[in-house]
């Protein structure tokens, strides 16, 4: 039997969901692989929803909203873009970025809705099943994706993505406009840092560990791990537990 991808779509109520309805009214035919979750605006789509779906082994996630400029809520889709871009950056770290897609479908684009969904189904078919699907997916990868979900939901990432438009498109309090490329650099660095930090938190869930063992487990330089540990201590998420054979052991704090 050929591979039938399991897909999830987040559709905004006013444009893409209406476009999907119009596809129905016009009897446009497309493959039945995608299930739809309706939200009022694409800007409502929290990165954690997308990552959670992938974590569960869903093969692809489609985010759809109104065309730029046509948002029912004026600018919600601009926010959707920023959140989506951040999610994609995160997923690049584990090679799952090509399993998510963002598109604009208006309420009058019933035909186009059918086309883009068909294309998504085909593209994911070519890509094959998600490494997280099936009965016994790779535990390590699940933990990595979980780290992404938690990192994307962290205060730091949410603050960065939430402020991006304001800071790069409008003047800040000093009357300066921050260059987008520079902001993206900061984002990229934060994405890697928060990803690694949340991997540490997950690695410490079951047992307390030393910097050295965390470094080898996560394949990250020990000096970087140590920096992360210090940051996480500052955030009251990790604590020093004990010294065993001259090596400090760190534990997860609740």
């Amino acid at each position: 039997m050929s591979f039938e991808p399991k897909l999830l779509g987040f559709l905004c109520n006013w444009c893409s969901y209406a476009g999907a309805d119009l596809a129905g009214v016009s009897r446009i035919q497309y493959p039945p692989n995608m299930r739809v979750i309706r939200v009022m605006c694409s800007g409502r789509i929290d990165p954690k929803f997308i990552v959670q779906a992938l974590e569960l082994g869903i093969d692809g996630v489609y985010v759809m909203g109104c065309h730029i400029g046509d948002c029912h809520y004026l600018e919600g889709n601009y926010e959707a873009v920023k959140k989506y871009e951040m999610t994609r950056e995160f997923l690049k770290l584990v090679g799952l970025d090509n399993r998510i897609r963002l598109d604009w479908v208006s309420a009058s684009e019933g035909v186009r809705f059918g086309e883009v969904v068909s294309k998504f189904v085909n593209d994911i078919k070519e890509l094959g099943p998600s490494p997280l699907s099936g009965d016994s997916p790779d535990k390590d990868l699940i933990n990595k994706v979980r780290a992404i979900r938690l990192a994307a939901g962290s205060n730091r990432m949410r603050a960065l993505v939430g402020r991006e438009r304001k800071i790069t498109e409008e003047d800040n309090v000093y009357g300066e406009k921050y260059p987008l490329e520079k902001y993206k650099e900061i984002m990229s660095q934060a994405i890697i840092e928060e990803y690694e930090r949340h991997r540490i938190l997950i690695a410490l869930e079951d047992e307390s560990k030393s910097v050295k063992s965390l470094a080898s487990e996560l394949s990250v330089d020990p000096s970087i791990i140590l920096e992360h540990i210090l940051t996480l201590k500052g955030r009251a998420q990790v604590d020093f537990q004990e010294i065993i054979k001259n090596t400090p052991i760190y534990m997860r704090r609740e």
């Binding site: 939200v39 009022m40 605006c41 800007g43 409502r44 929290d46 809520y73 949410r158 939430g162």
Partner: peptide, 8 residues
């Protein structure tokens, strides 16, 4: 719209 909720 829910944008604030996804952003908070």
């Amino acid at each position: 719209c829910g944008v604030c909720g996804a952003t908070c």
